[in-house]
Amino acid sequence: MGVNRFSEGIGRYFSAADLEKIRSTRVGIAGAGGLGSNCALNLVRSGFVLFTIVDFDCVEPSNLNRQFYFQDQVGLKKIEALKANLLRINPDLDINALDVRLEEENVRDIFAGCQVIVEALDGAHDKAMISRMFINGDKLLVCVSGIGGWGDSDRIRVRKIKDRFFVVGDMESEVSGTLPPTSPVVSIAAAKQADLVLSHVIGPCIKEKPLAR
């Protein structure tokens, strides 16, 4: 087996102790669309290696404006395409990729082994369902609400609801015909989700300012 150049490179930025924390955290990602695929990309680049990723969709041409997929992957299951793309960044990942629709009945079992849950679903009802299921648990829960359109990107903020429950977004801008999902705003939200996960796992290296509600 060849040298893993990703592992070789990331050692420059994190201590061995922090890397150990990062590598032993399993992150559950609910949805592999604009948020999930881009959050996963950021987490892999941050050194995370254990993932449970759940989605039942296939890659469509209309996804390519913002999701971490390529033209030749149109028609593939998102979980398979995402797994392949993430493994190109770091070949030593343990990805449990599940082609399942998340429901109230299966979500707890599916994410039982995860310390962190990234909510990256499309529908408001599903987002609320995931939140209700995990809001009072011991896992970090990072949700998103309000990422439609473009412009005024500072509206995409982090709201701390509880010690282990955060919501990213502007809380208002529902994706629609007039507020389409765009790569810059969706990527900002996904990157903020990943930053919350990283900060939770190894502690923030920037002093936290009190978060607005």
Binding site: G33, D122, A124, K127, A128, I147, I161
Partner: peptide, 10 residues
């Protein structure tokens, strides 16, 4: 009350 409202988009 703590109220968290979700809108679609992901």
């Amino acid at each position: 009350l703590e109220v968290v409202k979700f809108v679609g988009g992901g």
